[in-house]
Design a protein around this nucleic acid. Structure first.
Length: 427
RNA sequence: GGAGAGAUGGCAGAGUGGUCUAUUGCGGCGGUCUUGAAAACCGUUGAAGGUCAAACUUCCGGGGGUUCGAAUCCCUCUCUCUCCGCCA
């Protein structure tokens, strides 16, 4: 949620920045400014009347204590007339505040100055490309065929148990995922991120805090009986750990990491994009989250981008880093870098990480604050990124490293996997 | 699932309708003392709105009600704890 003070002070700047996200906010902001002024006026009026009432009530209490009953009764009458005159004010203020809040939550975060304008993924900027694309033999297989050949994943079995998008990983397929999770977590904790195992379902307040609600309601699985949402990413429970907290500067930055399954309904996604591991309803991901002093969030962003890049480099996968254009960015983000790896047999780029700075957008919703050196309470900035989405990495590892009778694994995974390559079941 | 108890400031824990701000302790911060530290002592210490700053208003789990006045009484919802049952 944008801060009211900023909208009040620089409404034109806000409108201009939101246009980069192709969001026309002029009507909403005009209404917001009007409501804000109205709220202030009514609130001042209400509070001064309230103060008067309080004073008289206090007098009555004192008169009663002294035993001057008649005088107290007189005062009571006086208050009754005063009160009936004002009964509408609190309701009016509340109604305006509600309206104001409802409008405020519809405004996306402002994109930062470095965000390019644009409408579609074609307008994203490739800021870096690394690694080398492998040259595959003519008969190279896509990962879903490799998964069958080496008995790693059974997609049909998942259909039987649950539905499409819920694959069953088997034997070496399960083991390689576990190896990656372990490696990624170790890599993150070595960089100072504290490991968490958060709940996989969250309440409404938490889903609202990170911006999933009310914007992306239909994308989450919902357990109606208990009013709980299955997490679409561990960003949700991790960031909410700090909800309503006021931290000390010495506790900053807060760095957290977690492995969790992620659940996404992916309503509206069909066709070949969803083939194999490309797009799943349940997948494993290791996430990193930072909550930092507002002066240092762009430094933290750079650090996280470098962190994820080094991780990809260690896996020997061809990758590229995109700076997303305004139209392709999420509702809550101020700037986002996407990391894609090249899936050589499919000949397409797969997004495996998305690193974003949310500035104070999420922390304003969650009231994650700190006390600065002057003792003033201020909002912190939050950031997060994947490190990494496991199935898509697996898809690329399988395709890019396939040989006639084995799949060679990157060196960093040997220890975790317990072997240097994946062989056929009977080999 | 059944029965009971409870929800108060960072934590612990008083407070059952009206004196000035919600006792007090711990913790935190500042100071005195000390070569330094500890101890001791003194002071200070919640959030939001509002203001140049104040005044002032709101907040004792959420919502509603009674009253001139509610942390306190009533209704309701949510959550937590204890015991029992079931169970990884």
């Amino acid at each position: 949620m944008l801060q009211m003070a900023m909208i009040r002070q620089q409404p034109d700047f806000v409108k201009e920045r939101l246009l980069v996200k192709n969001f026309d906010a002029s009507a909403a902001i005009a209404k917001i400014l009007e409501l804000d002024a109205q709220r202030k006026r009514l609130q001042v009026e209400m509070e001064s009347e309230q103060a008067g009432l309080n004073a008289i009530s206090k007098e009555i209490g004192q008169l009663m204590a002294k035993g001057e009953k008649e005088k107290a009764e007189e005062k009571k009458l006086e208050v009754t007339t005063l009160k009936s005159k004002l009964s509408y004010l609190p309701d009016a203020v509340k109604a305006i505040e509600d309206q104001l809040h409802q409008l405020l939550v519809t405004l996306p975060n402002l994109p930062s100055a470095q965000v390019p304008p644009g409408k579609t993924p074609n307008d994203n900027i490739v800021v870096k490309e690394g690694g080398t694309k492998p040259v595959l033999p003519a008969n190279a297989l896509a990962h879903w065929d490799l998964a069958r050949k080496y008995n790693l994943i059974d997609f049909e079995l998942g259909n039987k148990i649950t539905g499409s998008g819920f694959p069953v990983y088997i034997d070496k397929g399960a083991r390689i995922q576990r190896a990656m999770i372990q490696y990624f977590l170790d890599y993150n904790t070595r960089a100072g991120f504290i490991e968490y195992q958060p709940p996989l379902v969250v309440n409404e307040t938490s889903a609202y805090g990170t911006g999933q609600l009310p914007d992306k309601e239909g994308q989450m699985y919902y357990v109606g009986e208990d009013k709980l949402y299955l997490i679409p990413t561990s960003e949700v429970p991790l960031t909410n750990i700090l909800r309503d907290a006021i931290l000390h500067e010495k506790d900053l930055p807060v760095k957290m990491t977690a492995y969790t399954p992620c659940f996404r309904r992916e309503a509206g996604s069909y066709g070949k994009d969803v083939r194999g591991l490309n797009r799943l309803h349940q997948f494993d991901k290791v996430e990193i989250v930072q909550v930092v002093h507002p002066d240092y969030s762009y430094q933290a962003l750079e650090e996280m981008v470098n962190h994820v890049e080094s991780l990809l480099l260690s896996l020997d996968l061809p990758y590229r880093i995109l700076r997303l254009c305004g139209g392709d960015m999420s509702f809550a983000s101020a700037i986002t870098y996407d990391f894609e790896v090249f899936s050589a047999a499919q000949e397409k780029w797969l997004e495996v990480s998305s690193v974003s700075n949310f500035e104070s957008f999420q922390t304003n919703r969650m009231k994650i604050r700190f006390k600065d050196e002057h003792g003033k309470t201020q909002l912190l900035h939050s950031l997060n990124g994947s490190s990494l989405a496991i199935p898509r990495i697996l898809a690329c590892l399988l395709e890019n490293n396939q040989d006639a009778d084995l799949i060679l694994l990157p060196k960093v995974l040997h220890k975790y996997f317990g072997a240097e390559s994946i062989l056929k079941p009977n080999a």
